[in-house]
């Protein structure tokens, strides 16, 4: 085959694949602007006859989705902030500071990566119940404040900080906390962005655990609210699509803005595993 023929075939395949991945997302957006009942027709319409914001208005009005949006936003933000703090402290310590038991603990953590998180879920629920935290945001945030993956991600990156830099600061009499805030944190910035994107997306998209511990409707996150709504409003295509758009859009935008950092996280995670 000639080079130009090969090139044409290649791009046809690429365009086909991209159409498959993007079509459901574009269709979701289009249907979200349709009038109620418009999508339940044959043949299925691709574009709204008269674009309307009625579905969004209904979601924010009757369905109170603004509340769930805020819940999701600040839960994800808080989880991200706290996990950055704890994981970066520990990741740095495991990379650069010496303490008894460092290597054995590291090996235990690494081995524990194979345990699916759902194994811990039932006793974690009992623990939360015992602590009186069921049906509070603490039950969602607290277990996510630190994680093995986060500690390792930071550690791998922190290993590249030159020891001389830290030693020089110590000789100048800087405290360990001072060294951490003024030398280590700035050096870790790229990986902290990566970890932040991962944690934020993970928290935003999380389903099973919030579904279990948040039973009060006022506390629902967007995915839980959407799942509940979709069980009650099976026939309301257009409304559900507007809800899906509101759920997906924030994370999609965040990803597009910080794509490079997110992909680095995947690659570091896969090299380590």
């Amino acid at each position: 085959m000639s080079t130009s023929g090969a090139r044409a075939l290649l791009h046809a395949l690429l365009l086909g694949a991209a159409a498959i991945t993007l079509f459901p997302l574009l269709w979701m957006l289009s249907v979200s602007f349709m009038a109620g009942g418009e999508a339940s027709a044959f043949p299925p319409p691709l574009l709204p006859g008269h674009a309307t914001l009625a579905n969004y208005r209904q979601l924010f009005g009757q369905q109170n989705i603004g509340r769930y949006l805020t819940n999701s936003l600040w839960l994800a933000a808080l989880t991200t902030l706290l996990s950055l703090l704890f994981n970066s402290l520990a990741g740095y310590a495991f990379a650069k500071l010496h303490f008894r038991g460092r290597e054995p603990i590291l090996r235990v953590l690494l081995a524990a990566l194979v345990i699916p998180s759902q194994v811990a879920m039932l006793p974690l629920f009992l623990l939360m119940k015992w602590l009186g935290l069921v049906n509070t945001y603490a039950a969602v945030v607290v277990p996510a404040m630190a994680g093995i993956f986060g500690v390792f991600l930071v550690r791998q990156y922190a290993l590249t900080i030159p020891d001389e830099l830290l030693e020089a600061a110590r000789i100048d009499g800087a405290s360990e906390l001072r060294i951490f805030t003024s030398i280590v944190l700035p050096a870790l910035r790229p990986i902290l962005v990566t970890l932040a994107v991962f944690t934020f997306l993970g928290s935003w998209n999380d389903f099973m655990w919030p579904l279990i511990v948040l039973t009060d409707q006022d506390l629902y996150t967007l995915p839980i609210a959407l799942a509940t709504l979709s069980r009650e409003h099976v026939q309301d295509y257009e409304l559900m699509m507007a809800g899906a758009v509101l759920t997906v859009l924030p994370v999609l935008v965040l990803f597009l803005a910080l794509q490079r950092y997110y992909i680095r996280g995947i690659l570091m995670g896969s090299v380590k595993g």
Partner: peptide
């Protein structure tokens, strides 16, 4: 980027889309 986009979407939301 286009091929990767579904990975970052919220599972519950796109599951609803696919149901339709």
């Amino acid at each position: 980027t286009a091929l990767f986009a579904p990975v970052v979407t919220t599972l519950v939301a796109v599951a609803v889309v696919w149901r339709y």
